[in-house]
């Protein structure tokens, strides 16, 4: 009753669908621009995940559609039953083992990417202290970064192609420091300091988003990160230093004393 032709045809259709799905996954542009080395790794991971998922989804849907097409009750069959098949150990082992392997493969790969994204770079690294409070972000460039007095500001400038280590605190409730263009985020948690490192690799200005509900102003708690050339960055530091007289006084959102 399961005709060879119908099967072959269906398998062909499934393969085509899979192909289309995978092509689509490249055509659709899912992400905002990639502005950090981490972004490249993460997007590749995503594409691998999609490529792994498409066949699985197609498989499930194909079997459903094929059954509907071939096995739906035909006139005169209303009172008939299907064959009493209770199971098949070989099949069950297969569909336990194969997904398990796929999943372990994927999760291991994701750990590789995670490690890539988090490992300390060979070159120099600049520390930027980030402070979240309802409903604004503020930043502090320690002396190590300014070479002079620490600089407190509400603007975020980072030099191109240099690893930045964001050390994030909160003065009140939990916030999340998300830079979609970097594909990175972590919560700003009262009482502890969290951190991540990013290596910007594309000049431009990108949104900084508070991504954890922190009250009525949550939707408006935004900032911008400017990726500029190292020289431009130095220039900016100087201008800021003279502007705020290098003094690190009275700026809103001075980081909470470390705990």
């Amino acid at each position: 009753m399961v005709s060879r032709r119908s099967i072959v045809g269906t398998i062909a259709a499934a393969l085509i669908a899979t192909a289309i799905g995978i092509v689509l996954s490249y055509v659709i542009h899912w992400f905002p621009v990639q502005a950090s080395t981490q972004a490249h790794h993460t997007d590749t991971l995503y594409h691998v995940l999609v490529i792994a998922s498409v066949p699985i989804f197609v498989l499930v849907v194909t079997v459903i559609l094929y059954s509907v097409w071939q096995f739906r009750v035909k006139p005169g069959q209303e009172l008939e039953d299907g064959p009493p098949i209770h199971g098949n150990t070989r099949l069950e082992v297969i569909w336990t083992a194969i997904p398990a392997m796929i999943l372990l493969g994927l999760v291991s790969y994701s750990f590789v990417v995670l490690h890539e994204n988090e490992k300390k770079p060979a070159g120099p690294e600049m520390v930027v202290n980030v402070t979240g409070q309802q409903f604004a972000w503020s930043y502090e460039y320690p002396s190590s970064a300014t070479g002079g007095a620490p600089l407190k500001t509400t603007q975020l400038y980072v030099p191109d192609n240099e690893s930045v280590h964001f050390e994030i605190k909160s003065l009140d409730v939990i916030h999340a420091f998300w830079i979609p263009a970097f594909r990175l985020q972590i919560d700003a948690v009262p009482g502890i300091t969290t951190s991540y490192r990013a290596t910007p690799d594309r000049l431009g200005s990108y949104p900084v988003v508070c991504n954890l509900l922190c009250g009525v102003g949550h939707g408006l708690m935004r900032s911008t990160v400017h990726v500029v050339t190292p020289s431009a960055f130095q220039a900016w530091l100087k201008s800021r230093a003279s502007a705020s007289g290098g003094a690190s006084t009275g700026q809103p959102g001075a980081p909470a004393s470390a705990s």
Binding site: S110, A176, R183
Partner: peptide
Amino acid sequence: AMVAFDIHVSAS
């Protein structure tokens, strides 16, 4: 479940 990816889309 893939941490590196979740770090981008979590809470989105």
